[in-house]
């Protein structure tokens, strides 16, 4: 005990107020918790009471389309690289117009943790999170969604964006046909 007091003195000096503060600090929380016990709980009683999530709520993932109705996803693998639980897999391919797209695209929702890193990584705004959260099942295979299940007929957030119109490699527009580009250089001419 004597040493306890010594320690106390070393720590707080001779100020008796400190002891008072400590005692108060020990007892006061009991009052706080007791007071809270008589307040109304803030819990939503979920299945009976439903809450409308905010538009940026992160739940079921979709693949969106550009304004022309083309698939936005270019299968760049950035979402699968960003995914911390490795629930996204795909195979990229090239169509006859030179457009890169996902030959297949799969999200295993039974693994997904809805962290939103895929949507954040997506450079073409293809992969987006929706607020649809009532999403569960008993068969893991039914939670494995393929591209057909994921694609929606809408642009989602930032509806107007079309990656290929900005890419600068002449897939949607002819080469050099974007508004921020000069036409292709004629390398056989030295004329300015």
């Amino acid at each position: 005990m004597a040493e306890g007091i010594d320690v106390y003195k070393r720590r707080y000096g001779q100020n008796p107020k400190s002891l008072w503060r400590d005692l108060k600090g020990t007892v006061e929380p009991f009052y706080v918790t007791l007071r809270n016990m008589f307040k109304k709980p803030v819990t939503y009683q979920y299945p009976e009471e439903k809450r409308t999530p905010y538009p940026r709520y992160r739940a079921r993932i979709v693949l969106t389309r550009d304004p022309e109705g083309g698939e936005r996803c270019v299968a760049c693998y950035l979402c699968s690289a960003a995914c911390p639980v490795d629930c996204i897999s795909m195979q990229s391919s090239e169509d006859e117009n030179g457009r890169r797209y996902a030959a297949w695209f799969r999200i295993n929702f039974s693994r997904c943790i809805y962290c939103g890193l895929c949507a954040e990584a997506c450079p073409t705004l293809a992969i987006q999170m929706t607020p649809f959260y009532e999403f569960s099942g008993r068969d893991p295979l039914k939670m494995v969604y393929e591209k057909e299940d994921l694609l929606i007929a809408d642009g989602g957030k930032d509806n107007e964006y079309n990656f290929y119109k900005h890419a600068g490699i002449g897939v949607a527009n002819p080469r050099g046909g974007n508004e921020d580009e000069y036409g292709p250089v004629d390398v056989r001419s030295n004329l300015p």
């Binding site: 760049c76 450079p123 490699i169």
Partner: peptide
């Protein structure tokens, strides 16, 4: 430089 890293095989 074009804005096409997502569709470029060199990306990464």
């Amino acid at each position: 430089h074009p804005h096409d890293c997502p569709v470029c095989d060199e990306g990464g």
